[in-house]
Every structure is written in C-alpha cells, then in structure tokens.
Design a protein around this nucleic acid. Structure first.
Length: 712
RNA sequence: GCCGGGGUGGCGGAAUUGGCAGACGCAGCGGACUUAAAAUCCGCCGGACCUAGUCCUUGUGGGUUCGAGUCCCACUCCCGGCACCA
C-alpha cells in the first residue's frame, strides 16, 4: 500500500503517519472511550443485536448492508439478545441531520438524513385494564394522530414485554408458537416487504380513549420492538400495512379521513393522503392536517398522549468479539460492578499470545493473563471486559491525531487541532456515508460538548471520488485489486497513470479503464516532452504564415489556460483541466512550427506549461524543469497567476441568428457596440436573403455573443 | 414504494446566467514518411439530402421563450441509497 502510493508519486507527509492498531495510538482510542463513558455517552445495555455467524461477532446497524448481510463478508446476519457496549449517537440525531455550512454531495447528505429517519407525530395512550397487570396503558407512536378514531386493532411486537402477561390462556399455545417462529427468522425474511403480513390475536383488549371503544390486541412481527414504543395502532383505512392485515383477518375498516368525493363506500385500498375528517366525533369536518394537531392537543390536555418524535437511528453498538481492535477499558468487579480502567493504566494492551477459536466469543476471553486483574477501586479480584471496540472507533478521530501525531501526553494537542481543523477538503468513497463519515461527525460533536474543541463538524468540504471499473469489477482496497496500477506504472510511467485516471471522466464518477485510453495520454506526454526539449527557432517575419500565432495571441492563450487550469483544479475537475492543457500544448506546437514569436515569449509560455502540468505529471514536469535549466524543484515554485487583461479576448465571434437559427458567424473586435453589431449582422451577405421582404420585429443583442433578428 | 443522481456521436465525455451542441481524447477512415511495418506527422470524422448549401439531432411527448442539452409539466429507462420505521 505505502509502496504503491509512493510509486504513483502521491505526496504525503509520512512523518505524520499514524497506525491505529499500535498501542501508542489505541491508548487514546481507549481514553476516548473513558471520556464518552464519563459523559454518559457510553453505556452497557441488553438489546437484540446483529450477529454475523461467519465473523462470529456482533455488528452495528450501519454495518448491516443491502438485504441484511454483513458489510465485511456478506453473510446474512441474525438477531441475538446480548449485553453489549453502545455509544449514545441518538442523542445527536437532530444535529446529524443538519449539514448547514457544509459543502457535501447531496446524495451523502440525503443518505444521512434518511438514516436518522426522523418522524414527527404523537404518542397515544390506550387504556389497559387487565387483572394482575400493573400497567394501566399501552402507548403507541403514530405519525397520523388524525386517524385515531379509525383504530380497529392494536399490534404489539412479538417481543413486547407485556405480551406474556396479557395473553389469554386459550390463546397461549398459538401465541408462543408465533413468537418462536418469528425469532428464528433471519433479518432478511422478517424485513421483506413482499411477505404477507401475519399475526396472532392474544385475547386481550385496550380501550380507545377518544371513542371508548374496545380494541383487540394482536402481535405481528412487522411491528419492531426497537422502533417507537414497540406497539402500533391499527388503522386499516389509512395505512397500507394495516389494510392488508385487516383484510387477512377480517378486521373492520373504518374511514375517518374522507378521500375527495367519498360517498361512504368501502375502500378498495388504504387512503393515506390528507382529507376531511369524518366519523371522528367533535373533530368531524376538519382538514386532517389540522385534525392531527387538534387530537394531539386534546389527548395531551387529558393526559392521554403527547406530541412526539421518533428516529430510525439506533445507538452505535461498538462491542466486537474480535481480536483486532482496541480492548474496551472496563473492569467487572464482583463488589463494585462496572469500573473504568483509570487513565494512568492505559493502554490496556492486547495480549500477543491470544488463541483464536471459532467460539463466537472474544479470543481475549480465554487468555487468563489478560482477563484476570484487580479492581482499581477496591483492589479485589476482578475481570476485564474481553470485547474489543469496533475499528470504526479508531477512524473516528484519526484526523485529530494527524495534527499532533507523536504527542504522548494527550490524544491530540488542542491548539494544533484548533489551527488545522476542521478538514478543508475530505475525499473518500460514498460507501462511508452512514459509517465512517457519520461516526466522525458524532465524535466531533461529542468532543465539542466535552470542551475539547470548539467546532462541530470535522469535514467542511466532502468530495466522493468515483470507482474505476476494470473488466466489470471495481478497483478497490478491500475487495482486492483486479488489476494494479503497478504494471502500467512500470510500462508507461506514474505520470501517464495519474493523468489517465484524471482524464477518464469526472473525478466523482470514476470510469472504465481502457488500455487505448491510457496510450493516448502517454502519447500526449511524449508530445510535451518533444515540444519542450526539441528547441525553438524564431523565423524571420516574412516566413511567418499564420496570424493566429502572434505574440499577443500567445500571451492571451497562455493566460486563459492558467485561468482555466487553476479554476478546474479548485473544483477538482481534472478531466477538463487536462483537456485545457492539451489544447494549450496543441496550440504551442503550432506556434513552434510557425516560429512567430521571439525566444523569451516562447520560453515564458513553455515555463507556464510545465508549471501547470506539475500536479498532473510531477515526474515529467520536474525532469523538463531541469532540462530547461531551472533550479530544483518545480514543485516549490509559485503557482502561475493569470492577468485578466492579458486573458481578455480582443476579438470575438459574433453569432448571427435570424429567428433563432444560426445564419452567420463574424469575427469582430471585442469593443463592438450593440448598434455596430446589429448593423454588421444586417449587412452580412449570408444573412441578407433571410431578411429580404420581411419585417424586422425585434433585434436581440447579447454582448460579446450574438445578434438575433426576429422577422416576420 | 420513498429519497438522491442521471440519459448528449461508434466510445469516454465537453458545453458560466438559457445564447455557435459535440471541446479534449479514444476508436475509425484517408494521406505523408518507410522496401515494409511500428512509431511519428498531416487531414477527415453526429445523421440525412438535391452536399457552394439546406434540414434534422442532446431518452419520449408537451409547454415557456426571440432563442432550450440547460427552465416548467407529464412520461420513460438507467444508476445509487433506504425500505413493514407505524
């Protein structure tokens, strides 16, 4: 990896390299864990978690991709109830949806907003009166409180804690069987929208406060315990899932929001749009948007509900049953409970003699020297946490470490971090949208709230580079490169490879690797070599053929090229930047053939060409720089500046249209006025035939561009 | 289904605010050099026709405008993400 980066001429400050798996780095990763713990942002909790049977470890939600498979090995994940360490990323849900002041691609912002998944609605209580059950209500979350009069059933998640206690004796067998069945299913099966919704009536009821109706309670696995309250109100008339469920089990479907023109007929499908409220008591006649607020207010006054917000985002599960990753610096003491490792005892080192067994538990668990320790609080015998941290934890703060990579008294030097950060321009793949990029934002906000930094966002500008496709496979670090740049570097040189990758298409789009494409770039670099090294000879004025190559024209083209290349470079539009350099070198070749300028003008333009070429073809540019008698190094020279006056066109091509159709092009001085331009247009021999016998209604003039004569 | 991004020659792709569609390169064709080939250099290169020119052409259909690849409406196809989130 390092060798490849160097071979292609990438410039990094290797003195700042950090290696996240070394103790000098992960000591501070562990330190951050302790800080997050102190701040109440790291906690241990039991939850249904994602388990990868192949990697034998738990995964964060963000690391379950596609159809519910492991991000690393693509094995379908299953659910397990385990006690694990979590970070309270949900506390920053609202802030993570905001990207104010960030220059980020729309699609990444949208993926992050989507991942947070904010829904505004209400929590509504349904009265519960069940012998032997303490709870007097079940709360549901809904985005449509306006449809509360349309509730004809309630559905609990199968794992809902009340299910066992509420189930009627005669329903027990069926309910238990259903729960067992849904537990066995993989995430894919359970989440498939294709699947028919099924469920079981548990033989208990709640009461709808609004209309006093008794509502049967069902369980169904399309209701998720982890979202909202784990219970939903069934409104079949106005929700597609509830509609399907009601049809299957013959539950009644009551319209409470009338579609336009509704005459009381039965619905063929759920009506999910807004409408006028009906069958809703005192709320009848209200538009449903207003009805939602009115019902929420009404319930709130009676203590039977409140407005509420739900998120799809879950807390970040960071425990891993893996050897790699920093050990979680926590100790379990029989007397004191969970005790953090004191800062002075960091790092908690990974043992070097761990054994790897496919047990589904951390390899550290079987390493007695690691596990057994003494409690920092009471000194009694105790055991270490044996899980390690998600490696995304290491990458969530490495850019802070870059600002002071060898600091051994703190994770980073706050003053230096304040000076260098936030990162001006961050490039990376879009696949990090809801993983690394998301976690790094969370981490930055948490550090801010701890008072360690005074900014909120790690990366001001984000740019996603595209993927290079070779023989229908992507070139990628984690997937194993199908072809490596190495062979091309040794055959055609690093500069040709770099320039080709830039030229292949827009940087964010990637592109398909094509061998004849790179040979074209290689030919161009050869032409540049010849152009610069093969000398220049001015011809006597009489021999000069072409007026396009005057000294004035040369300086204009040179300065226009500086402008174009500089602007494209800032916008990371390398493909058009190289096109501009090609046009420039093509033009210089013509000047050279004509010999129409003097040596010093020629030399100035050639110097500019080399300087503009330096970021693209650093090796070639350096060599040519030396060959033309300059001092080492071209890469330490100031970037050329363009002079707006010299870049100014003296002549423009005036486009002449009649009724919007192109009829002529005339080269005129840039100083041509509107009156002159219109006159020139009208007198053009190509234009005249189109004006004859016609009445000119309008004459449109666009300065420096065109004249359009509208005739009838 | 929802969100985001796209559809331009044989191919990759250019085209500030609405103002010359196809920059630049690849492939192809013709020519020069050569005994020949490679390399290099020069020219042509969206389509049609009655080829000095005219007409058509930016996924499809409509609209706005003097003028639309660009703006608006509807549709369609492709890519990426999310997806029983109540």
């Amino acid at each position: 990896m390092r060798r490849q980066l160097k071979s292609i001429g990438a410039i990094y400050d290797w003195t700042r390299e950090v290696i996240t798996c070394l103790p000098e780095y992960y000591k501070w990763t562990q330190w951050f864990f302790l800080k997050l713990y102190e701040a109440g942002l790291a906690y241990r909790g039991k939850a249904p978690v994602n388990w990868c049977p192949h990697c034998q470890t738990v995964l964060a939600n963000e690391q379950v991709v596609g159809e519910g498979v492991c991000e690393r090995c693509e094995t379908p994940v299953i659910r397990r109830d385990l006690e694990q360490w979590f970070f309270g990323i949900t506390r920053y849900a609202d802030e993570l949806m905001q990207h104010d002041g960030l220059d980020w691609p729309e699609r990444i912002k949208s993926m992050q907003r989507n991942w947070v998944g904010k829904s505004v609605g209400a929590e509504i209580a349904f009265a519960l009166d069940h012998p032997g059950v303490e709870e007097k209500e079940i709360r549901v979350f809904t985005t449509r409180p306006d449809t509360t009069f349309g509730v004809t059933f309630m559905v609990l998640a199968p794992e809902h804690p009340l299910v066992a206690r509420l189930t009627a004796p005669n329903r027990k067998a069926e309910v238990e069987e259903y729960i067992a069945r849904s537990r066995q299913q993989t995430e894919i099966e359970r989440l498939s929208t294709e699947r028919e919704k099924d469920g079981v009536f548990i033989g208990a009821y709640v009461k709808n406060h609004l209309n006093g109706e008794s509502v049967p309670i069902w369980i169904a696995d399309y209701v998720l315990l982890s979202y909202g309250t784990g219970a939903v109100m069934g409104v079949p008339a106005h929700d597609e899932r509830d509609f399907a469920f009601a049809q299957k089990y013959n539950l009644s479907i009551r319209v409470v929001v009338a579609p336009p023109g509704w005459q009381g007929e039965e619905l063929e499908q759920a009506y999910v749009e807004a409408g006028t409220m009906v069958n809703s008591g005192q709320f009848d006649g209200l538009p449903s948007e207003q009805g939602a607020a009115a019902i929420t207010d009404f319930l709130e006054k009676n203590g039977q509900g409140k407005s509420s917000v739900s998120y799809k985002l879950r807390d970040w599960l960071i425990s891993r049953q893996r050897y790699w990753g920093a050990p979680i610096p926590m100790i379990y003491c029989l007397d004191c409970g969970i005790v953090p490792v004191p800062e002075k005892d960091l790092p908690v080192l990974l043992p070097e003699d761990a054994e790897f067994k496919p047990t589904g538990e951390s390899p550290l668990k079987y390493n007695e020297a690691f596990v057994n320790t003494t409690c920092p609080r009471c000194g009694g015998p105790s055991q270490r946490e044996t899980d390690t941290m998600d490696t995304f934890m290491c990458s969530s703060w490495y850019f802070f470490r870059y600002t002071s990579p060898h600091c051994d008294t703190s994770a980073f030097d706050s003053e230096k971090a304040g000076h260098w950060l936030p990162v001006d321009l961050y490039t990376g793949g879009a696949e990090h949208a809801v993983m690394h990029l998301f976690y790094a934002r969370f981490f930055t906000k948490a550090l801010r709230d701890m008072g360690l930094i005074d900014f909120s966002e790690p990366f001001t500008r984000l740019f996603n580079q595209g993927v290079i496709i070779v023989e229908r496979q992507k070139m990628s670090k984690s997937k194993g490169n199908v072809i490596t740049p190495d062979e091309y570097v040794s055959e055609l040189g690093a500069d040709a490879v770099r320039a080709y990758l830039m030229f292949i298409g827009p940087w964010e789009q990637g592109g398909e690797w094509n061998d004849s494409g790179i040979s074209g770039i290689s030919r161009w670099l050869t032409r540049i070599w010849n152009l610069v090294t093969s000398g220049y000879k001015q011809k006597t004025p009489g021999q000069v053929q072409d007026i396009e190559q005057t000294p004035r024209a040369l300086s204009r083209v040179t300065h226009q090229t500086i402008r174009k290349v500089t602007e494209d470079l800032e916008k990371l539009r390398f493909n058009t930047m190289i096109a501009a350099l090609m046009e420039f070198s093509n033009y210089l070749a013509k000047v050279r053939e004509n010999g129409s300028v003097d040596d010093s003008d020629w030399k100035k333009s050639i110097d500019t060409l080399m300087l503009l070429l330096a970021p693209t073809a650093p090796h070639l540019a350096e060599e040519l720089w030396q060959q033309t008698g300059h001092d080492y190094s071209i890469h330490n020279q100031p970037w050329p500046k363009w002079d707006p006056e010299l870049a100014e066109d003296e002549e423009i091509t005036l486009v002449i249209q009649v009724n919007g159709k192109l009829r002529d092009r005339i080269i005129v001085p840039a100083s041509t006025t509107e009156v002159e331009a219109i006159q020139i247009a009208a007198e053009s021999t190509r234009v005249k035939p189109y004006l004859e016998g016609k009445e000119a209604l309008r004459k449109i003039y666009v300065p420096g561009k065109l004249v359009n004569i509208v005739v009838r």
